[in-house]
Structures are given as C-alpha cells and as structure tokens.
Design a protein around this nucleic acid. Structure first.
Lengths: 192, 192
DNA sequence: TCGATTTCTTAACCCAGGTTAAGATACGTC
DNA sequence: GACGTATCTTAACCTGGGTTAAGAAATCGA
C-alpha cells in the first residue's frame, strides 16, 4: 500500500524506515470513483493527497466554463496549494478522471510533522520547489507558445496525458476549445 | 542596509536577532545599473538575490523575441528557480529595469544554511510555497482571462508595475504585442 | 440490447490580436 | 541644443482561434 509512496519520497530525499513508518501513520486511504470530486471551489483545502493509483485534474471555473490547470497521475501529490497554505477558500476544483486510490494527510498533521521531523520540513521545501519549476514552465508555455506548439510538446513530453485523458480536457489544458484542437489535429494530419 | 530584509523575512516567519545576523554574513551587496543583467539564459544560476531597492524582470527569449515572465520590486527575491535548484543552464534572463541594489547569496551557502539552521529550511519552504501560489495565479490568468482582463487586473492589483514599467514590457508580460496593448487602451479610453 | 450520453469532428462565419508601416513625443547624452 | 534612441500610438490588412450548429462514432448504463 505504501510502496509507491516510499519510492516517490526517496526520489526527492531519502528517509529512514523509521521516519517513513511514522509518516505512514498520518495517512488515510481514500478512494474516488471516476468523476468524483476531491475538492470544490469555495471549500478550504484541509488535506493533500498522494495518488497511489489513478488520475486527477484540477480546474478553474469561470462564467460556467471549466479550464484545466493541471493533470496528475500516480506518484504525484494533489491539493489546492493556495487554499491549503493560506486557509482561504479554494479557487481550484479537483476531480478524479479515473477510479483513483489516494493517501490523504491532514493539513494540521503535516504542519506538526514539519515541526517535529526536520527531514519532512525539507521534503516540503523540495516538493514546493519542484512545483514552482513545473508551474513556471507551464506559465512560459502559455505566454509564448502557440496552441499548436503546446499540443506537440504535450505529445512529446507527457504521453500519459495523451493516452489517458479525453481530448476536450486536453484542449482546455492547452487554453483552446475542443473544436480548435480538432482543427489543429486535422492541420497536422494533412501533414502541415 | 539589512532593514528591509529583516522586515521581509519576519513577514514570512520570525527569526531571532542572532539567526538573522548569521544569515546577513552570507550576503554580498551588489549594484546593477538600469538594463544591466543579473543572469543570462544558458548560464547556471548560482546565486539568488534579495532586492533592497529597484526593480527587475525575468524574461524568456524565443526566436529573438523577449517574453516577460515576471517583475520584481524591493522586498522580493529573484533568481531562476529551475536553474538554481537543478544546476541546469537557465532558461530565463534577468535584467534590472532601474538602478538596483541587491543582497546576493550563493547557492552553496544557502544549502549549507538550510542544513545548519532549521528555521531557514522552513523559510525556504515558505518562500517556495508563496512562489507556487503566485505562479499558479499567473498561469490561471493566462489560461482563461482575455488580455484586456489581464490588463485591468494588473492596474487594480499591481499599481507599482503600471507606475514603474514601460508599456511595451507590460504588453509582453500580458502575452500580447505593444500595438495590441495600445489598441486595448484606446478601446477602454473610448469608454468601452 | 438499445437508447442516452460522451467524445470527437467538420464547416461557415466572426473577431481580437498579429503584422507591417509610419509617425509623434519624450528622453538622454555628447 | 541637436541628434539618436526609446516609448507609444494609429491604421490597414491578415490569421488563427471562438462561436454556432450539426452529425458521426464510441461508450455507458439500465
């Protein structure tokens, strides 16, 4: 049950068996059915979740339309950082895109863990730093890549997204409408 | 010389006078003239800098065009996170937009500080977490706000940017060309 | 198994931002 | 004070994504 978590943690920084066991006691398993939601906008994000199996997305709602911010697969952590850290209502919605198994940790338990075990404080820093890198890459791509370029990069860099996620969700992630993604795909198929 | 830094640190988390003094010994003052660069793409970002006075931007270069990622003013930290953390060549360029005074810390010194003083490990986490929040907000705005909406939000939320930064740099930050920003401004001036 | 829903595509028309070119101010600096 | 540069604007034309509408194909659920 905790195998994937151990591997995922160790990739960021090695923890002793003892420290890991303690961490594991703070985690609660949770299952989400496909399309079930982990967090709704307006709620406070009081937990973050490690994905043991499955796939989720977070998205924003504006004028009734959804805009996919990011997709997450097994081995990643999900949560609304802004809400989790500040205690303010979430602006993000988080849904499962497949039947999903999570390991969930409460905000207050994580805060206490940071204070008690320095190695996890470091883990928190490394995790946040890695998220910064990913988020800045995404910002840069939205700033200066065309939708077509973003689509091609997605195919090249994140095959899992192409394999497991419907095209209309991908379009939303790319910042365009499904019809436009179809058009781009046709353009590319008619070899440019 | 360290007053603004102390205030800025304390806002994230309080440090004792003693801890602060130790931190200060790791910092080197540095001045940049307007338009001088702190980091060029391709270099490794081996330092991060606290802005004591002045203003900088980081930008990306693509096909000879600059794309402004972010602006920073006194009280903020600047650096290419991706390069600083991974040791890979920077993809960002960092320039001063005004004559600027910095306090610079070396990567290796900061790493050592994290290991020696837990309070700074925590500081590093909190700083990274705050950057995540800012970066995700920016991503979201690029994803679903129109350029006009982004411009209006910038006026409302970041008056310093409007006061101190040329419009063509603001256009680049908004993801549009200077001519388009002029058009948007005209549209708004002709009251909608 | 069969109707309903989800997913994906196509096409016609519209529009905001890009491109190109030009000109007006303001700013520096020698 | 004058020349060059940086900043900002305007306008005509172009283009790629949005909108609307429709239909085909795959999947789901009862």
């Amino acid at each position: 049950m905790f195998d994937r978590l151990k591997i995922s943690l160790d990739r960021l920084l090695p923890v002793t068996r003892d420290e890991f066991m303690y961490f594991a006691t703070l985690l609660t398993p949770r299952r989400l059915a496909k399309h079930e939601s982990l967090l709704r906008g307006g709620e406070v994000c009081s937990h973050i979740a490690f994905i043991n199996q499955g796939c989720l997305r977070y998205y924003y709602l504006k004028d009734g339309d959804e805009y996919n911010g990011q997709f997450f697969f097994e081995g990643a952590w999900v949560g609304d950082y802004q809400s989790f850290l500040t205690g303010q209502p979430a602006v993000q919605y988080i849904d499962a895109l497949e039947d999903t198994e999570l390991l969930v940790i409460k905000r207050t338990d994580l805060q206490a863990l940071y204070a008690e075990r320095p190695v996890f404080e470091r883990f928190g820093r490394l995790l946040a730093e890695n998220i910064v890198i990913g988020s800045q890459r995404r910002t840069a791509s939205l700033l200066f890549d065309t939708p077509e370029e973003r689509y091609l990069k997605l195919i090249a860099e994140r095959p899992k997204v192409m394999e497991r996620i419907p095209l209309h969700h991908i379009a939303s992630y790319l910042g365009i409408k499904p019809e436009s993604l179809s058009r781009i795909r046709k353009r590319l198929a008619d070899n440019r």
